[in-house]
Simulated assay, not measured.
Amino acid sequence: MTSAIINPTIQAAALAGLSNLLAQAIQAYRTDQPLSLDYRTLLQFVVFSLIATPPNVLWQEYLEENYPGDQIDEKGIKRLHKHNTAVKFVLDQTVGAIVNSLLFVVGIGALKGKDSSTIWDDCQRVGYPCCAHYDLKIVGP
């Protein structure tokens, strides 16, 4: 892996850990309970981030390669390519968001040890009824 993938992955894992710690602290504050860190949940979020970030970096690189955000005008000045930027935004906020949301539900579910039918139920519950049309078979013993 190149540093173009490694650096964002390390940063994303650190942010995932920090955000989970903050979420646990906020939950403890809201419920007026002492903070008792759930290290298992913290680790699940960090591991998921380590797994999910490299494909996301590659997705962003793909979008930039196919829809460059900058263009050089006739005077040699770099300017924002508005159409390509809009296309990237729409693709990322539709296709990218759907795929990432599903992968988050599936990935965290798998890291928590849920079985495939429970994970698909979770997908449907969070708004992906398309999952009901596929029978997920996990290959293994």
Rank of each mutant, 00 (worst) to 15 (best):
Val99Glu: 05
Val99Trp: 15
Asp122Trp: 00
Asp38Tyr: 04
Asp70Trp: 15
Gly127Ser: 09
Asp32Trp: 05
Pro8Val: 04
Val46Gln: 06
Gly96Gln: 04
Leu50Cys: 12
Asp135Leu: 09
Ala25Thr: 11
Asn20Glu: 15
Val57Ile: 06
Ile51Thr: 04
Lys78Phe: 02
Gly96His: 05
Pro141His: 11
Val90Trp: 08
Val90Glu: 00
Asn84Asp: 00
Thr41Ile: 11
Val46Met: 09
Ser116Cys: 13
Arg40Met: 12
Ser36Thr: 14
Phe104Leu: 15
Gly107Met: 08
Ile6His: 06
Gln71Asp: 08
Ala4Leu: 13
Tyr29His: 04
Met1Val: 11
Arg79Lys: 14
Thr41His: 13
Val105Glu: 05
Thr118Asn: 03
Cys123Thr: 01
Cys131Ile: 03
Asn7Cys: 06
Leu18Thr: 13
Ala4Asn: 09
Ala28Gln: 08
Gly69His: 00
Ile72Phe: 02
Leu136His: 12
Thr9Pro: 14
Gly127Thr: 02
Gln93Ile: 02
Tyr39Arg: 09
Val57Gln: 01
Lys114Leu: 12
Leu15Cys: 14
Val106Ser: 03
Ser101Ala: 07
Thr118Arg: 05
Gln60Trp: 14
Val90Ile: 10
Val87Met: 09
Lys75Arg: 15
His83Asp: 10
Pro55Gly: 04
Ala4Gly: 12
Asp92Gln: 01
Val139Phe: 08
Gly76Glu: 04
Gly113Lys: 06
Gln33Ser: 05
Gln24Glu: 07
Ala132Gln: 06
Val99Gly: 09
Asp135Arg: 08
Val99Gln: 09
His133Asn: 12
Leu63Gln: 01
Thr9His: 10
Ala25Asn: 04
Thr118Phe: 02
Leu103Lys: 03
Pro54Asn: 07
Thr41Tyr: 04
Asn20Ser: 03
Gln11Trp: 00
Glu65Arg: 07
Asp115Asn: 15
Asp32Met: 15
Leu35Asp: 00
Pro8Thr: 07
Phe104Glu: 03
Leu22Tyr: 07
Gly127Leu: 14
Tyr128Leu: 01
Asn100Arg: 12
Pro54Tyr: 05
Ser101Thr: 06
Asn7Ser: 10
Met1Thr: 11
Lys75Val: 11
Asn66Ile: 00
Asp121Gly: 11
Lys112Ser: 07
Asp122Leu: 11
Gly140Pro: 02
Thr53Leu: 12
Ile138Arg: 07
Pro55Phe: 02
Cys130Glu: 06
